[in-house]
Amino acid sequence: MRICIIGSGIAGLTTAFALCDHPDAELSVYEQDVHFGGRADVGDGGEHCPRFFMDDYRHLLRILGMIKGPGGRTVHESLRRVRRLAHTETTGWVEISHLYRMMAKEIPLREKLRVLWAWRPSPLLAERHFSGRGENRYGSARNYSPLPLARMAANLFRSKTAFVLPGATDEYLVDPWVAHLRERGVTLTADRRVSRIEPSGGAVRVHTRAGAEEFDAVVVTAFVPDMVALLDASRIDHAVDEDGHTHCVAFTVDLDDREAVLRESGPVLYSRDGINILMQPDAGRCVVLCTLSPRTDEEYVMEKVRLHLDLRHPVRRVRQRPNQRPGEAILAGDYLRPDRITRRPLPGVYFAGSAIHNSYPIDSAEGAARSALTAAALIRRDLGLRTDRPRSADVV
């Protein structure tokens, strides 16, 4: 049975992982970018964001425990628990026991109220100039609907601890995962954009610049804007809109080896002035995410980074990911019901990704993994796939 997986983000990699132990399945993963990983890729602009793995990422962490990473350890074993530091006006930097400062018992109530007052959107952040749905004018302007915002708030009570990779996401996560799949016979091809899909008898025809191929099943794991573009190009009647997104500018900063902050024993998250700085001492760098800062230009952000980390030497390199395109952003829209994406049944086509309805409450790597495991289970059922070995992962 030939199966095509469109997209190599967490959902695409998880789908391939869940199916690669089936001897009857011939798997092909097509990625439109030159890098694998989807929004977990690391390109010339550096990291998409500081990548956190929450303590309730039950299914994703189990999968990462079966993938060998650098040094012979599994990807899961490479994860490091992150310390969190928040800044207060009265006591300076304070280590907190919760990932989010507003939930931390170490922060006095008066300081929390002061933070809430300071977070009132500035005229810059409050402006919403859209040339189309899912777009905005400024890198940290907010564009989301009330329901996903409520889900995010509710999740704060559940996720108290976070883990991070010791270095670059491609080195410690994506590359080992791709190698794992290739060792099991999965074909992964980068720079292979799928232009359209169409039914072809009992199969699904997939068109790329290399030509057309027929598959018994196709899994679309593209992020919502790319999914809409693919369905429109395929002239498939669907009910998907480009939901709201949050565009958060990210910087990857390589530091001078002499900086005192690099002598920390493990990763540390510093949060102040609407800027979150993840220090990764083992990699000699930090990843900066601008969420509510009044400006997102490099000059302003790097001035704040130098101040917050007490840097004494010029930085070695700064890379920037504007994350302005909807396909690069963070989803803050409503879940898509996979059985309601197409208005008419489309046999052989399945959907997965962080936007697909699943049991995890917010857009995340765990949500992408859970939806992918569900899609893989449906394919096993519909195609009658057999296995001679224990499966790598089970459906949620």
Rank of each mutant, 00 (worst) to 15 (best):
E298N: 06
H308P: 05
M302C: 12
P314T: 02
T252C: 12
S234K: 06
Y300I: 08
I275K: 08
T291M: 03
D310W: 07
E259F: 03
V240T: 07
R295C: 09
P267R: 09
D310N: 03
L230Q: 00
D282F: 12
V288G: 06
F215L: 00
R285D: 06
I277Q: 09
R312V: 01
L231R: 08
D232V: 04
G284C: 00
N276F: 11
R235D: 14
V315Y: 04
P225S: 09
A239F: 04
V224S: 13
L230N: 00
R235A: 10
D257T: 13
S293Q: 08
P294F: 02
R285N: 07
V204H: 05
C286W: 01
R306M: 07
F215C: 00
S265E: 11
L230V: 00
G284V: 01
L230H: 02
V315H: 10
V249S: 15
L269N: 00
A217T: 01
H238I: 01
I236R: 09
P281Y: 01
G274N: 10
R205Y: 02
E264G: 11
M279A: 13
E242A: 06
L230C: 04
P314D: 12
R235P: 05
L311I: 02
M302W: 05
D243F: 01
H247A: 08
Q280R: 12
V315K: 04
V268A: 13
L309G: 02
E259D: 13
V228P: 03
T221N: 15
L269C: 13
R295Y: 11
S293H: 13
M279S: 12
L292H: 06
Q280W: 01
D243L: 07
H247G: 08
I275Q: 10
T246W: 03
M227K: 14
A260S: 09
Y300W: 15
M279N: 11
S234N: 08
S265Y: 04
F215K: 00
P281W: 01
E214F: 00
E299S: 04
I277M: 09
M279L: 15
V288S: 05
L289S: 14
R263H: 15
R312L: 10
C248M: 08
D232M: 05
C286V: 14
V261L: 12
D232A: 15
K304M: 09
L231S: 14
D216W: 08
Y270F: 10
A260Y: 01
E214L: 00
H245E: 04
P281H: 03
D243W: 10
A210G: 10
P314K: 08
E259R: 07
V288N: 01
K304E: 13
E303Q: 15
V261H: 06
L311H: 01
R258W: 04
